[in-house]
Design a protein around this nucleic acid. Structure first.
Lengths: 332, 332
DNA sequence: TTGTACGCGTTATCAG
DNA sequence: CTGATAACGCGTACAA
């Protein structure tokens, strides 16, 4: 690859490097017309492209932000990433996306790597497993924003769903439709993920508030691969749940897989609501009732916030909750 | 952000910068034990992180490759990206993903930007609209690989599906199941995308080979937003198609949307096959028959190839076709 | 075994 | 209006 530098342009145009640099940075307040033209021509002829790496080194800024998602398999992650990217693009920032796979060590590795790459800021869906590291970044006043989850004891601005309300909306709708034996399945057993905890709490609270029985057997936190078995056991009992809340899109898929394999009719045999609005929800037979997160807004706010922080401004409260929306369709 | 450099470490450990550099690059063939320990300690205490930007500038290599997809909305794109990322990760390479949105100007802008960022190579789902630029890169011997599509007259290695065969498999299955009036819908009208053309060609050829009537009215290339209307017109005719091939996942979604809105029964009223295997295909009622691309393999090969090229090796033919697979389910 | 000096491509400062 | 010159942080001959 021919690598033509500023020096080449300078020589070609018979000026010095600094003059070329000024031209490139639009500082031609005092630049001669003919000099300008000569440089322009030289750039054109040589096909010169500035080396952003060198510029970054000098300016100590890469116009790049790092995004670390806990689990890229969730539709929510990709939707939010898109929103972040859209918004960053407007400010000529780029993003590097990494997938921590719900693994704190991977997350740590990525954080260190992105810092080494001199990204100007970080948006993280935290696994929660690197508290010391989070704190260090915060203390260093490094621009960082949490998304989807917060971490107890770490004062980093967090953009989150009102998770309790999400479950609450779902359960209230189940009740409204006449269901009484209501269950819930979530993922992420091993990790202490606040999202899951809050959703389960909202679920239990709403059940209690309506004096409905709460069977622990019908509230499961499982690895994805355990879900089929667990459903089998849950539904073959004497009084199986009539309605099931899927804690996220991955759980929803598993439930639908089970439903299909066992010819269960929805909502006659089993009513279903899923948290996270997936693309096929409205196409499915029957169309799926879901609780949607305002993904675009959340991503946008994360991007706005990180860009503000990078500029040294800092105007947000530490926690910002977004409202979920119940989208009533046919599965409940 | 505290920015601790090699110099700080060197001072802290009472050695020179180069000794620290050697330590970092594991060249301690001739390094004193105690020196090693002092450096280690200094790095630990100061929390030193090497500045990759500076290193890249010196080494003229960023361990980063750029990926430009034509349209990120296709499930195929995200699946392939994941495969690429997986594979690059093994070689400690990072990827920067950009979405050209089927817009050649955006594509051009991204190519230039990624070059300016000194990425070591480029994997592109080409829009086909920047032939001169492609040629320039090729001539400069810059590491580049095309994916999903090829560009006529540009000798860049291309990793593609055997698109004719994909349609062919679908049509053959339609015929085997007794359907005779068969239609097809694709997207990307404006652009001269080879993928679309090849799929339509395969469709027509197979129809011809089986002496079936080929109604041009039943072969449509449309913008996504036009599909609903077009389906309306197509299906209200006297002898509407009994079977429909969706040229990609976006078309499939539109067809399913229409089907649901008009209570059309699948496959009784209309048989459907989609090219691209989407996640919900097996969950859907009825489960959707699809033609799957070997997305993981394709992404993996793209990554392998670009990494080889970056190392100066170059061992692949210019065009590599992958075999599609018909996955028979219930929609046909 | 360790230190010195220079180069990578750019920008900033300050003379001229 | 333009051009030296010195950083930026790191890698690497070459010297010591």
């Amino acid at each position: 690859m021919k690598t033509v530098t500023m020096k080449d342009v300078a020589e070609h145009a018979n000026v010095s490097k600094s003059t070329v640099s000024q031209y490139l940075n639009k500082r031609f307040d005092y630049m001669g017309e003919k000099t300008k033209e000569r440089i322009e021509k030289a750039i054109e002829e040589l096909g010169y492209q500035p080396n952003i790496i060198a510029r970054s080194l000098k300016q100590k800024s890469t116009s790049t932000i790092g995004v670390i998602v806990a689990n890229i398999l969730h539709a929510f992650s990709t939707q939010v990433i898109r929103a972040i990217e859209d918004h960053c693009h407007e400010s000529d920032f780029h993003i590097i996306v990494c997938n921590a796979d719900d693994n704190p060590e991977k997350e740590k590795k990525y954080i260190e790597m992105l810092l080494a790459k001199q990204v100007d800021g970080l948006i993280i869906f935290p696994t929660g497993g690197n508290v010391e590291l989070y704190k260090r970044l915060l203390k260093a006043n490094y621009p960082i924003v949490f998304l989807d989850r917060m971490v107890e004891g770490v004062n980093i601005p967090s953009i989150m769903l009102d998770n309790e309300k999400a479950s609450s909306l779902a359960v209230a709708h189940f009740i409204e439709m006449g269901y009484e034996r209501i269950g819930m399945i979530t993922t992420s057993t091993s990790l202490n993920v606040v999202t899951r905890i809050e959703r389960v709490n909202g679920f239990k609270k709403t059940l209690n508030a309506n004096q409905l029985p709460m069977t622990e057997d019908y509230i499961k936190s499982l690895e994805v691969k355990e879900i089929q078995n667990s459903l089998e056991n849950m539904l073959k009992q004497a009084h199986p749940p009539q309605a099931l809340l899927a804690g996220n899109d991955l759980v929803l898929m598993e439930i639908l897989k089970f439903v299909k394999a066992h010819s269960i009719r929805i909502p006659t045999d089993l009513a279903i609501i899923g948290i996270d609005d997936v693309g096929f929800a409205e196409l499915y037979n029957p169309a799926l009732t879901t609780v949607a997160q305002p993904t675009y807004e959340m991503g946008k706010q994360a991007a706005e916030l990180i860009l503000l922080k990078i500029q040294g401004k800092n105007e947000m409260d530490d926690l910002n909750r977004f409202e979920p929306t119940l989208i009533k369709r046919e599965s409940c």
